[in-house]
Design a binder for these strands. Structure first.
Lengths: 133, 133
DNA sequence: GACATACTTGACGTTGACGTAAGGCGTACG
DNA sequence: CGTACGCCTTACGTCAACGTCAAGTATGTC
């Protein structure tokens, strides 16, 4: 059974990040590891948040934007104040992401179209006029 | 009818970028405006490339990555050498983008799920136990 | 000729997201 | 006891993608 908390090294190995990155995220208030003496212990909540951070980054969100998104996820768990406002932020983000997805879908189609060209061309290079062997 | 070339200012107004950005892209070999004396003239090809640059940026591609993508688009037009290699780069990019799209779709679904919570909560805040007025 | 304007080329500044190096603390081992 | 880890903080370094500022050139225009 997985332990309740993880050390910084376990975190690094698990999620393929450096200690510096985790400390940096803490300093930016994206993670809130507890302390045992002077050492950090990362909870299940920190791990869930880190996964969302890494995912967000892959979409080009800035850390500050991700921090706002994380606020929303917290609200899902523990009902908080300021819900209406943060809710608006989230609707906004969601609309952005849907636009981005649609545009991405379109670009993929474009690119596939271009690749047809390359495909026929590459194929013709591998097949001389008449096959030998 | 649109002229064959555009000045740097026309480009800036059309695509909402700064002169500095266009010169920077030229220095990085993303654009190749011709010269009339010392001034730049941007061709139709430059405009097509700029659109792809701006689109690429929205997906978080680096300028260097975009430069590689642009090479591919050139191949679609004027058949070039090194096709097989660049073709491979493109298949790679395409796979990346499809993975990214799928993940984005999933994240959107997650986020919508969270928002249902917020929605019910916000609704309950606007409706006290029994309506007054 | 003086001036405005539109463009040019350096060159240094800025921001975000860390990398990296220096020096200190606490425990564990030989 | 020394020293070897593993972690800590502080602080300066780096890279991409431009912004910003200074100084120069060509063209028109009063």
């Amino acid at each position: 059974m997985s332990e309740a908390t993880m050390t910084i090294r376990e975190m690094c190995d698990t999620y393929d990040v450096t200690p510096r990155t985790l400390r940096f995220y803490e300093s930016k208030e994206l993670l809130f590891p507890i302390r045992e003496g002077q050492r950090r212990l990362f909870t299940k909540r920190d791990r869930a948040r880190l996964q969302l951070i890494l995912r967000g980054k892959r979409f080009g969100f800035s850390l500050e934007e991700i921090r706002q998104l994380l606020e929303l996820y917290d609200i899902g768990d523990q009902q908080h104040t300021q819900i209406a406002k943060t809710y608006e932020v989230a609707r906004q983000r969601l609309a952005d992401m849907e636009r981005q997805r649609d545009e991405l879908t379109e670009t993929i189609a474009d690119l596939k179209e271009q690749l047809k060209w390359g495909e026929r061309f590459v194929a013709s290079m591998n097949k001389p006029k008449r096959a030998a062997e």
